[in-house]
Design a protein around this nucleic acid. Structure first.
Lengths: 336, 336
DNA sequence: CAAATTTTTGCAACCGGTTGCAAAAGTGGG
DNA sequence: CCCACTTTTGCAACCGGTTGCAAAAATTTG
């Protein structure tokens, strides 16, 4: 049914190689030949089969998009940007949705079967071993939003989560809070661990400030709400929380408001991510933003450069996070 | 670098056909042969190249996922479910993110180059012509969340949007509102048009009820907020709004609260979609839910059945929507 | 204008598999 | 044990392209 290279060759009265060459840039074809072929192709509505050609060129232009964060609204934006940026480069995203049990080996195989040219592992919760499995299988990989190390196995693009933890702590301190808490996502998520570590590092410089911590079972509204309810019922509340994600913060806010606690008068909240919703006037969350667009642009750039030169050594690209001041922390104390 | 069929054949000391047959179910292979091949494959870490085989079988097991709704949080859930359900069937989703200008023909070609076995067009705003382009190109297609017709060109799975409009109108009437408004998304989105039409149909039965309408420029928080602000500044407010989407409703709620209008005391709001957020305690939106899971399950089922029998006639599968009562409409009037 | 170069073209092998067909091997019956 | 029949196996062609190589055509040079 579909038009093949051969059909075009016959109609144009030339060899198949000639047709192939007209569609391969950089190949040697005379102007006359190109004309003939193009008119035939046009007339037949031919477009080359990317998979067949991949067989000889070794390039599919398919990029595996690996993620497990299908519950955090921020990832809709991630998918939007990532797919767009890939499309702009002539690459096609093949989606891989990791469900709880999929292990790294299976994931790699699932993409290898389709000979993807590379994989972008996009998740703030997967352990680094995951991306490493791709590299070990010879699949060029970029880990976006992942944990970095000083001697990286693979390209990592994202933010320094522990620096974000420090930033949050500094901000709480600056606002004059003296009893603060960290509320993370799942304890095993690398982003939770790193933000927590940074938070503690900064507090270590201020031994007078009391602090505590708790962990929600997931990066989700319900989990944040549940954990905050637990804290409230337990009593002994801190003055402010650093929540490891906006969606968690919003859940927490809802629990606070149910309990009749006012924000920021009674309790302060600072979130993380600056998701669209955080700016909505009825939420108005003070938070820390990561430059998602730049992170993804950089991820795609890195991927493209690996395709050209697979031997480039693993690189870590970190972008600064920024405080977004809104209405859920009390104002800085005036020391006049 | 990667292990090929031939490598396995050599190691097992058999023909390539034999190896191919061991990996093709339904093929004739003796137990002894299978053993030999499997041990060789295992040892070499072989897994068949899906693209190479597609060349002869004509099956890639790739399904194009076509959408343009990358801003409505509900679509994160759609992608999550859809990719999962496809993966369960051994199919792989190839994502196509339609940006404003991509026309149907380009979209089709982008997927045809990768010989997708089928395409799921998932959008509540695209005109039916879009899916038709796939069908015309011979690509099996299911349109999820799309507009249906009584003589469908392609499979359509979703809800009857105009029935949803009627449902919303009936509910507002039941609550005793006598001056209501429709607030849709973009006027050209099919879902906006259909919900609006149903809304008006129901109201036509109640000539005593006053009504008006307005349209937001997009299905987004900001657009909903802006449109509501416009309505407020314009004065002459209705008692209640049916918003064509939850995210629009939430934007509207924020504008109302800024203006000092209380919900549901001063103004009632009923949304559409029942996105996760609608149930959050600080939003608590009365809305209409569509059974997303069933719609997607049905879409995937339909796709799978088309792959077996491409000639099956186009089918329309509609699922009922349901009212979800929360806190943004006033209670039913007691007529004691 | 012939010879030397350069460019364009087609042939044929190949990418990694699948599959129709016929030969080889296995099975059962007499 | 031979023969007819069924199952298993390998050969070779093919899927839709690409590409090295050498022949053919076009261009430049002397």
């Amino acid at each position: 049914m579909p038009v093949t290279l051969k059909d075009v060759a016959i109609r144009a009265g030339v060899s198949t190689s000639a047709v192939s060459r007209t569609f391969t840039d950089g190949a040697s074809v005379s102007e006359k030949m190109r004309q003939k072929v193009e008119e035939a192709a046009e007339h037949l509505g031919y477009s080359p089969n990317a998979l067949a050609s991949s067989l000889t060129t070794g390039r599919t232009k398919l990029i595996g998009l690996v993620s497990n964060n299908f519950h955090n609204p921020i990832f809709l934006q991630v998918f939007d940007l990532l797919t767009r940026k890939l499309q702009d480069r002539g690459l096609r995203p093949l989606l891989l949705n990791l469900t709880g049990e999929t292990d790294a080996k299976t994931a790699v195989r699932m993409l290898q079967q389709y000979s993807v040219d590379g994989a972008i592992v996009s998740s703030s919760t997967l352990p680094p071993e995951f991306s490493k499995a791709f590299r070990d299988a010879g699949v060029p990989v970029v880990n976006s939003f992942g944990r970095f190390s000083t001697a990286p196995d693979v390209h990592v693009v994202g933010v320094d989560n522990s620096e974000c933890g420090r930033l949050a702590a500094r901000e709480l301190i600056r606002r004059g809070y003296t009893n603060v808490a960290f509320m993370g996502g799942p304890e095993r998520a690398t982003s939770t661990q790193d933000r927590h570590r940074g938070f503690l590092q900064e507090l270590a410089k201020h031994p007078d400030i009391r602090h505590s911590e708790s962990f929600a079972t997931a990066y989700s509204f319900d989990a944040g709400r549940a954990e905050m309810q637990r804290r409230i019922s337990q009593g002994n509340m801190p003055e402010a929380f650093f929540c490891g994600d906006d969606v968690l913060s919003i859940g927490a806010l809802s629990a606070l408001s149910d309990a009749g606690l006012r924000v920021p008068e009674d309790i302060g909240i600072i979130g993380f991510n600056d998701m669209e919703m955080a700016g909505w006037e009825n939420i108005n969350l003070t938070t820390i933003s990561q430059p998602i667009d730049r992170i993804l642009q950089s991820s795609v750039d890195l991927m493209v450069s690996m395709l050209d030169d697979p031997s480039s050594p693993p690189e870590v690209r970190l972008f600064p996070c920024q405080l977004v001041e809104r209405g859920t922390l009390r104002p800085v104390l005036d020391h006049a």
